[in-house]
Nucleic acid binder design. Structure first.
Length: 583
RNA sequence: GAUUCUGUAGCUCAGUUGGUAGAGCAUCUCCCUUUUAAGGAGAGGGUCCUGGGUUCGAGCCCCAGCAGGAUCACCA
C-alpha cells in the first residue's frame, strides 16, 4: 500500500469496488496537492468571465480571459504543453509554458502540480491571454491556473482523428444510461438532444401562453387512476391509511378545471404506467394535455398542426425532420382521413354498418388475429393497427374512432356509433390523441359502467368509475376539446432517436448491485482448504488437495483464491510443491 | 413475456482444435518550447460477469444464474 494512502485507509473504499491503479494514483495526487497547501476542492467562487465558444468566435489577440472547465486532453512536450479545456460550451486549447507559469526559480507549479498531479477530467480555472499558435489555433496562454476539483476516476477517452472518425467511443448503452454524467462529458452530441428537449417544451409552452391558456398542476398521487387505459403503480398513504395511485393521465383533473371556468388549461404531465419497458416505453414518461372550452375536434386539428409546425421550427430551425429512413415534414396542414376510409383504402373492407360478427369475419379474412372477447371497437382497432397505421409516415390525422374504444369522448354528431376523436400518426405511430370531450354526465356515467363490465370480464386496463368527476360534469362542463401529446415520442422524431432512453436523462434501469466485499471474505472452498492447512501450517500441495477432497475445479479456484487474498503461499522445491500459511 | 446475441485491462476491442492473458489509447518513469487522433524509449496494470460441471488442464466446451443489447408481442 502506498505510504500516503496507508495513512488514510478509508480512501480505498470510498467507491463500490476495489480501486484500480489509476484511481489509487489520483487519490495520491489529490493528497499530495493538499500536502503542498493546494486545496483540491476549494470553496471560493471562481471568477469565470468567458466561455470556450465565444473565445473562438470573437477571437482577439492578447485579450485577457478567465475560463474554467475540465482538462480533457494534454500534449506535453518538455517545458511546454498544450491542453484542451472543456466547459459547458465546448472546448478551447490552452497553452501551459513552464516559464510563463513559473517565472522564478521555483518550477513546482509546472513540473509537479500541472504535469504530475493534474490529470484528464480535473476541473481547473485558467487566467490567461489569447493568441494563435503557428498552426493558427486560437489558444489561451496560461498565466495562472487554479485547481478547482480533482477527479478521482479516469474518464473514458474517445478521440476524433483528422477524418472525423471517433475512436474508443464510450458507446455501451448500459454504461451510458447508468452514468449519464460521464456520457454527457465525453459525448457532446448527447447534450444537444437534451437542449432540444428543453427547446421543445419551451416552444410548446410559449405557443399555449400566447394563445392565452393557463399552465396548471394537478395531483400525481390519485385515489382513482383515470383518464387512460393502463395499469397503474399503487402506493400507500400512512396517515389516511388508503391506497394511492400514481397518475396514468391527468385528463379528468384538467376537465374539472374547465368545469371550474378556465377557458384553456394545459399541463406537462409526468405519467406512470406499470407496464413493459423497451426502447419506446419507460415506466415514467411525459405527456402534454391541453383542454380548451367552446371548441371541438375540428378546431383542435387546426390548432395541433400549427402547434407542431411551430415546435419543429423552434427545435430544428425547419419543419422537416429526419427519422431513420424517413424524412417527415411537420408543415401544416396535415391530411385528414376517417378510420373507415383508411381501412377501405388499405384493405378494401368497408366497416360501415357491419355487425360484430361480420367485423370478426372480415378481420380474419384479412389475416388479422382476433379472439372472441373483442367487441366491435376493438376489432376495428385491430384491423386499423395491423393494416393501416404503419403506412402513415407524414403527419396524418385519423378521425372518427369507434365508440367502444373512447369512453371519454363525445359521440359523433352524425353517427352515434363513432366518436369525435382524432389521432395524429407520424412514421406509423401515434403521437397525439384528441377529442371533442364528452360533457354529457348521463352518457359519461353509462360509458364508465361499460368499462366496469369490461373490467369484470378481466380487462385489467379498463377504467374505474370516478364519482367526483361525474359530479363535476353534472354541475356542467362547456363544450370542450382536449389534446394529448406524447412528448417523448415527439422528441424522438425531432432528434432522430429510435430509443426513448436516448431522450431521457435517466431512463429507468434495474438497480446496480453495490455490495462491497469488506475485506477478504472466503468462499466455502477456500475455507475448507484454509482450515486444513492452518492446522498444519505447511503442507505438501498434493496432500492438501487430497485432504480437501474437492473437485479439480473447486480445488483450483480455492487455492488460487487463497493466494490472491495473501493468506497462503506456494513454494517450489526441487521435487515438491509446498503450501504454507502466510502470517 | 418469447427469440437471439453479448459480457476479457480505466476506455475500445482481439484471443486459433482446450495448453503461460493480448493490442491501441489511457496510467507511471525518462527525453523533448507553438503541437492538432497518436512525438521517442521503457514499465506497471486482469475476479476473462457469477456459480457449478466435463477435462491432467477452461477466457474458449456443457448447465444454471446475473446484467445488457437487438428483434417480436402489449402499451404512449
Amino acid at each position: 500500500m502506498p505510504a500516503l494512502l496507508s495513512l488514510c485507509p478509508k480512501l480505498y473504499t470510498m467507491s463500490n469496488s476495489q480501486l484500480s491503479e489509476q484511481e489509487v494514483q489520483r487519490r495520491e495526487a489529490m493528497l499530495k496537492l493538499r500536502e503542498m497547501g493546494i486545496e483540491p476542492y476549494p470553496a471560493a467562487l471562481y471568477p469565470v468571465n468567458h466561455l470556450s465558444d465565444k473565445i473562438k468566435e470573437n477571437f482577439e489577440e492578447g485579450k485577457k480571459v478567465v475560463i474554467a472547465g475540465r482538462l480533457m486532453a494534454r500534449r506535453i512536450q518538455g517545458k511546454a504543453s498544450f491542453g484542451e479545456l472543456q466547459d459547458s460550451a465546448g472546448r478551447v486549447q490552452v497553452y501551459f509554458n513552464r516559464d510563463e507559469i513559473c517565472p522564478g526559480e521555483d518550477k513546482t507549479m509546472y513540473n509537479d502540480v500541472y504535469k504530475k498531479l493534474l490529470g484528464i477530467g480535473d476541473f481547473v480555472g485558467i487566467e490567461g491571454e489569447l493568441f494563435r499558435t503557428q498552426v493558427g489555433e486560437p489558444t489561451v496562454k496560461v498565466e495562472k491556473f487554479t485547481v478547482l476539483s480533482k477527479s478521482l476516476k479516469p474518464l473514458p477517452l474517445p478521440k476524433t482523428d483528422e477524418d472525423g472518425t471517433v475512436h474508443d467511443a464510450f458507446t455501451d448503452p448500459e454504461l451510458r444510461y447508468r452514468q449519464r454524467y460521464v456520457d454527457l462529458v465525453v459525448n457532446p452530441h448527447v447534450k444537444d438532444v437534451f437542449v432540444k428537449r428543453t427547446k421543445l417544451f419551451n416552444a410548446m409552452r410559449e405557443y399555449f401562453n400566447n394563445a392565452g391558456y393557463l399552465e396548471v398542476e394537478t395531483p400525481i398521487l390519485q385515489p382513482i387512476p383515470g383518464g387512460a387505459a393502463a395499469r397503474p403503480f399503487v402506493t400507500h398513504h400512512n396517515a389516511l391509511d388508503i391506497p394511492l395511485y400514481m397518475r396514468i393521465a391527468n385528463e379528468l383533473y384538467l376537465k374539472r378545471l374547465i368545469c371550474g371556468g378556465f377557458d384553456g388549461v394545459y399541463e406537462f404531465s409526468k405519467n406512470f404506467r406499470n407496464e413493459g419497458m423497451d426502447r419506446t416505453h419507460n415506466p415514467e414518461f411525459t405527456a402534454m394535455e391541453i383542454y380548451v372550452s367552446y371548441k371541438d375536434y375540428n378546431w383542435m386539428m387546426d390548432f395541433t398542426e400549427k402547434l407542431l409546425e411551430h415546435c419543429a421550427t423552434s427545435v430544428n430551425g425547419t419543419t422537416k425532420a429526419v427519422f431513420g429512413e424517413h424524412e417527415v415534414d411537420f408543415k401544416a396542414p396535415y391530411k385528414r382521413v376517417t378510420m373507415r376510409q383508411s381501412i377501405l383504402d388499405f384493405t378494401g373492407f368497408d366497416i360501415h354498418g357491419k355487425s360484430e360478427e361480420e367485423l370478426r369475419e372480415g378481420a380474419k379474412s384479412l389475416g388479422v388475429e382476433v379472439d372472441e372477447t373483442m367487441g366491435k371497437g376493438k376489432l376495428i382497432d385491430e384491423i386499423f393497427g395491423e393494416k393501416c397505421e404503419p403506412n402513415y409516415i407524414q403527419p396524418t390525422f385519423i378521425i372518427d374512432y369507434p365508440k367502444e374504444m373512447s369512453p371519454l369522448c363525445k359521440a359523433h354528431r352524425d353517427n352515434p356509433e363513432l366518436t369525435e376523436r382524432f389521432e395524429l400518426m407520424v412514421c406509423g405511430k401515434e403521437i397525439a390523441n384528441a377529442y371533442s370531450e364528452l360533457n354529457d354526465p348521463i352518457d359519461q356515467r353509462e360509458r364508465f359502467e361499460e368499462q366496469l363490465k369490461l373490467s369484470e370480464k378481466g380487462d385489467d386496463e379498463a377504467m374505474f368509475i370516478d364519482q367526483d368527476f361525474l359530479r363535476a360534469l353534472e354541475y356542467g362542463m362547456p363544450p370542450t376539446s382536449g389534446l394529448g401529446i406524447g412528448m417523448d415520442r415527439l422528441l424522438m422524431y425531432l432528434t432522430n432517436n429510435q430509443s426513448i432512453q436516448e431522450i431521457l436523462f435517466f431512463p429507468q434501469m434495474r438497480p446496480e448491485k453495490w455490495d462491497a466485499p469488506a475485506g477478504p471474505e472466503l468462499t466455502d472452498n477456500e475455507k475448507i482448504i484454509f482450515d486444513i492447512l492452518s492446522k498444519e501450517g505447511s503442507m505438501d500441495l498434493g496432500a492438501l488437495k487430497e485432504a480437501a477432497g474437492l473437485s479439480n475445479k473447486q480445488w483450483d479456484k480455492g487455492i488460487k483464491g487463497l493466494g490472491k487474498h495473501g493468506l497462503t503461499k506456494v513454494t517450489k522445491t526441487d521435487d515438491a510443491l509446498t503450501v504454507e500459511v502466510v502470517d
